[in-house]
Design a protein around this nucleic acid. Structure first.
Lengths: 249, 249
DNA sequence: CGTACGATTGAGAGACTTCAACAAACGTGG
DNA sequence: CCACGTTTGTTGAAGTCTCTCAATCGTACG
């Protein structure tokens, strides 16, 4: 019955997420709750889907944190996105047969697998849900664009601040973060792989942000004393997240 | 009748492009040829769609070259994608009301506007075309991921090489480039905005690539004496382009 | 209580930037 | 068709951001 409870909240988080990007009708909510979910636990640092794989199902992140990354032949790694509960990080596998990147876990996580066939059925019966899912992958793409910009045209200091603004905003959207405090599961090495920096420089950049009073980052919790100040140094403009209601100032 | 001719080849290029990513049936080709196209010319450096706009139509690039970019408050600019004929660079506007970036022209270009309504009708009647268009936006996203990696984890030398490999591969896919020679419309400043480098360093990087015999770049034509050599320094793996037939080695 | 991983610090090197000047190419109008 | 102005490409020198290497420290976990 713990499993039943998990199933309940699993669909809840999906619906909460979809509500942030489109107007879910009662009918559609009902249909979404009918999605089969094969729930499993994954360890921190474990890979959920591998580069080169040909998935036949998508992963709904129920709790914990996932990330997508590309490994280079020379051993380097680039993290290309961070995911919070409610996200379906490999939704693209519905129309792209083979994975061009891997999906890993930043922390111990709970994921639910949904067969492609179930999603396709759902879309056939509820075209608006299909549009919403398409929209979701388009928002993914918008975030990638912002990341290109982050890595290409922002300094380490600005880029780090931007990554934090985005993460907290996404967490707030699904009601998993307070106004100014938020779980923050990344190690400094992972922050480096996400921002294109070396671990050492990540450390120094964090110290700068700390001593400037922009962040308080201890262990796995980030708090932001002055949101507007951080947003300004990051040049953070949440428009690219395409959220329905502005949860940000 | 010049206009009629343009219309003909306009639909041709769209079909040629879609053929690179899915199997277009005769019926579907017919339907695609029925799409209304409002053709217009755009100057080099002119903007086609502005950041913040709410488009009601999509742009098919018929000839010339477009690019997408984000402007930062501090005046910097990041180019996030390059587009070749056959592309519909603002297809995302179908489900994302407001533009989070701008669309500009690298060279004098011909674009055809297609009303959202016409695309939606087409998708309703031919769901497989809908899937193909979704797939196209997913490939866009895959390219963004690769660009994050390019800017974050490749050196100037490697990143420049990678950009060229990708561009030439896309051009070859729609049969607009020879094996080892290709139009290449970017100025060095634009190359800098695409790779996250300063114009000066672009210049020096190009000289290095030239003196290593990897590229011959004169005016607006790029030729590649040894594809495998360039591909190797770039760590270019075309899988992320998700082309149906491998046009690359 | 040791071991391993993550965080921190220092020092030196390298990649890339900025500033500034100049040369070459291009388009345009006379 | 040439002269001109503007854009693009090229070069030098100095500076800065970020990296690498390497060592140390803290801390969580078995």
């Amino acid at each position: 019955m713990a499993k039943l409870l998990a199933r309940q909240s699993a669909h809840d988080i999906l619906i909460r997420k979809l509500t942030t990007i489109f107007d879910v009708s009662p009918d559609e909510e009902e249909a979404l709750r009918g999605l089969p979910l094969n729930i499993r636990l994954v360890d921190a640092d474990a890979d959920v889907v591998f580069d080169g794989a040909r998935p036949t199902e998508c992963c709904l992140l129920i709790s914990g944190f996932l990330f997508r990354y590309k490994g280079l032949p020379n051993g380097a790694r680039q993290i290309v996105s961070l995911h919070v509960p409610g996200d379906v990080p490999d939704l693209q596998s519905l129309h792209l047969e083979v994975m061009d990147h891997s999906l890993g876990a930043l922390a111990p996580s709970v994921v639910g697998s949904i067969p492609h066939s179930a999603i396709r059925d759902l879309i056939r019966r509820y075209p608006r849900i299909g549009d919403a899912l398409w929209r979701d992958t388009l928002i993914d793409a918008a975030i990638f664009r912002e990341w290109v910009t982050n890595v290409g045209r922002r300094s380490a200091y600005q880029g780090m601040a931007h990554l934090m603004c985005e993460f907290v905003t996404k967490m707030r959207a699904v009601e998993l973060a307070q106004e100014n405090e938020c779980p923050f599961p990344l190690t400094q090495a992972e922050l480096g792989d996400a921002t294109g920096l070396s671990p050492v420089h990540v450390n120094r950049t964090l110290q700068e942000l700390r001593s400037d009073g922009l962040i308080v980052l201890t262990g796995k919790v980030l708090s932001i004393p002055d949101w507007n100040a951080l947003k300004d140094v990051a040049m953070f403009e949440p428009r690219y997240l395409h959220l329905r209601s502005e949860t940000t100032s």
